[in-house]
Design a binder for these strands. Structure first.
Lengths: 196, 196
DNA sequence: ATCCGAATATGATTGAAATCACATGTTACC
DNA sequence: GGTAACATGTGATTTCAATCATATTCGGAT
């Protein structure tokens, strides 16, 4: 099921797609055809800067939506690349624009979603501002950013994978993180104040 | 005059305020009272992370709005600090919520603004992902981020002022930037292909 | 007019992350 | 089963921005 407020849309405005690892859902510069929902799998949004650097903008996992801002853009400004075998629902741009005009609740839902996205980006910026690799990795893990591979995680938080592995090891040694498996780390539960 | 779609609002929902350098318009954690428009001056939005680092989120100049996403938040999640003697218009949160329910065009305008803000944050993230100080500074200047002081600029793009000054000098030496005055730099106009 | 604080500017040193290099482990596919 | 591709993990070296230090200039306040 699609997240609010997209449940209000007609079935005809949706198209189910399948992607394999490495497939492009869309490319930077493509004309916008709609916004997307990840039914299962993972889609990574990356942008190539003028200098040729590649930046991960967003790592959409199962249940996430992406390219929401494209309703008001003529073309996508990043690449959407499949990182795991994925089922993706495309929601037609025309249908959204029609619904926006006709359905107040739908419109409000969209606005709220965008507001949340703004806050998410702010969080990411806050994270990126942490200079120390160890502090950054710790904060990122605590924020639940380490879902997929460490390589992806490293890219998302703006570190090399090597620096990331080292930070994960250091933090585990310090007891701030607990290694729960190969490439799996979780915050060590803090001893909470409890009533006696 | 307020930017679209805020012209539709009643005069009663606006309050004009004056701030001096260093004044707080609001603080991180304050309950949200509305969103703001900079009639003149400059307001800097900074956020303090758990580790005590301070991040510049946004540098609102004359004609800019800020705290737009606060419509859907109970409290502000950053500090708004005045960086130049400023006249600021506060737009009541209640009035906005009322208008959102009653006026479709207003609602659409708000949504569009948020979509643009999402893109702005993406741009900032892209900028922050550039590792080389020189490349980052060049890109930032080309994006028109160097409006106020170099110190502010440095903070906004995530570099120390020293690194920033050095990059500005290097880029000027390389001819990629032109020094137009003390603390003033502009991109050197590229030789465009012209019809013969 | 001058005193103070902040911004501009640059040089020297240092420290931490990037880079390079490489070993092992895992998965998927022919 | 073999192997290709990629993720995990760590060590050695280099690089480049942060930091420390310091001089100068500018603007505002007294």
């Amino acid at each position: 099921m699609l997240p609010t407020p997209f449940g209000a849309l007609d079935e005809k405005s949706l198209s189910q797609m399948r992607y394999s690892i490495g497939d492009h859902v869309f490319r930077q510069g493509d004309t916008t055809k709609g916004i997307f929902f990840v039914a299962s799998g993972g889609i990574c949004l990356t942008r190539v800067t003028e200098s040729g650097n590649s930046v991960t903008i967003y790592n959409a996992q199962t249940g996430d939506m992406f390219a929401e801002a494209s309703i008001y853009s003529d073309h996508y400004h990043c690449d959407a690349i499949c990182t795991a075998p994925s089922e993706v629902v495309r929601i037609s741009k025309q249908a959204i624009q029609k619904q926006l005009r006709e359905d107040t609740a739908f419109s409000e839902g969209i606005t709220k979603r965008l507001a949340v996205q703004v806050q998410d980006y702010r969080q990411l910026l806050t994270l990126r501002a942490v200079k120390s690799a160890n502090d950054r990795v710790l904060l990122a893990v605590e924020l639940g950013k380490l879902t997929g591979s460490v390589t992806q995680f490293a890219n998302q938080i703006g570190l090399t994978k090597e620096a990331c592995y080292r930070a994960l090891r250091d933090l585990s040694d310090q007891g701030l993180l607990t290694k729960t498996g190969r490439g799996r780390y979780a915050p060590t539960p803090r001893s909470e104040d409890r009533l006696p």
